[in-house]
């Protein structure tokens, strides 16, 4: 490095791969969300279910250790916290409402403002491709989803195994549960990231974005239920995106009910279609950003 007379210092070092830009974008975007008090309030609400289940698992293990004679009663009492796939699946499904609320409010920070306030120009004029930007944003949104659903579920899984008498045996016997937790979390992360990217690209301010998410996740489910009731056809439930994701989650945990098994392929198709459409909707909007 040499110092010019004007005080400006030259810099010449080989640049890193553009793929690092994905991580940089994800980190910066998450950093902006984490600075918001509202996020921490919502995250506190999201943690309530986790803390409750954490306490229940601990309490159950304590009772089983101290009152071995009452084991059948305790196990029946805490049936929903018995450490099988359904325990974690139900926990993750239970987090869906708060996840949607967090994403709806964080959407304008993560995606909308890039369009609205010129952040997109800032990003796209750097040493990255549009693809790196998309991956970075998806990582950020996916990270939020994993933080609220998958990470706590994994912590509960580890806690349950740790408190079981035969810890190693539990993990050996139930390793598929860990895979199922990660798989279900990944499906949620990918789908919700893409939906947020698409809706955030078009509805950049908080209020329209929240309204659009209310339509997708709060209004569509009763409509789907109503149509299913009217036409007596389960396939109408496919209109409920959460239901589709949940069905895939059940498949991940190996707990799909028989009556839903035949709809599972349709649900998968709907979820894949939503992902593809979201990408197709978002990319032209991002490409259309005027740089100068």
């Amino acid at each position: 490095m040499s110092t010019l007379s004007s005080g400006y210092r030259e810099f010449s070092e080989a640049p890193r791969s553009a793929w690092w830009g994905c991580w940089t974008i994800a980190r910066a975007s998450l950093g902006l969300v984490f600075r918001r008090k509202l996020f921490w309030i919502l995250f506190a609400f999201a943690s309530l279910a986790f803390l409750f289940l954490f306490a229940v698992i601990y309490f159950r293990a304590t009772l089983l250790a101290n009152m071995p004679d009452a084991a059948p009663f305790v196990e029946r009492l805490f049936e929903r916290a018995s450490g099988n796939g359904e325990t974690y699946r139900d926990f993750m499904v239970g987090q869906e409402v708060i996840t949607v609320i967090i994403l709806a409010f964080a959407g304008s920070i993560l995606v909308g403002r890039d369009h609205q306030q010129g952040g997109m120009i800032f990003f796209l004029s750097r040493r990255i491709h549009l693809f790196h930007y998309l991956v970075g944003k998806l990582l950020a949104v996916g990270g939020l989803v994993l933080l609220v659903t998958t990470l706590p579920a994994l912590v509960l899984y580890i806690q349950f195994g740790y408190l079981t008498e035969d810890t190693l045996g539990y993990f050996k016997e139930n390793w598929r549960i860990a895979v199922a937790i990660v798989s279900f979390g990944s499906v949620m992360a990918v789908v919700l990231s893409l939906v947020l990217l698409a809706t955030g690209s078009w509805m950049q301010k908080s209020v329209p974005l929240v309204l659009s998410w209310i339509c997708i996740f709060l209004i569509m489910p009763p409509i789907a239920g109503f149509l299913r009731h009217i036409y007596d056809d389960r396939r109408w439930l496919l209109l409920n995106l959460w239901w589709d994701i949940r069905l895939i989650g059940q498949w991940c945990f190996g707990t799909v009910r028989e009556r839903h098994a035949e709809i599972l392929p349709y649900a998968s198709i709907v979820v894949i279609a939503v992902c593809v459409v979201s990408l197709l909707v978002a990319i032209p909007k991002i490409r259309a950003v005027k740089v100068a």
């Binding site: 640049p15 902006l32 750097r126 100068a292």
Partner: peptide
């Protein structure tokens, strides 16, 4: 992409990221 590593672009509009 490589080119933009050697180019600096200053747009007319703000292009800022609020919160930073």
């Amino acid at each position: 992409v490589e080119l933009r590593g050697r180019v600096g672009y200053m747009p007319e509009r703000d292009a800022l990221i609020p919160g930073l």
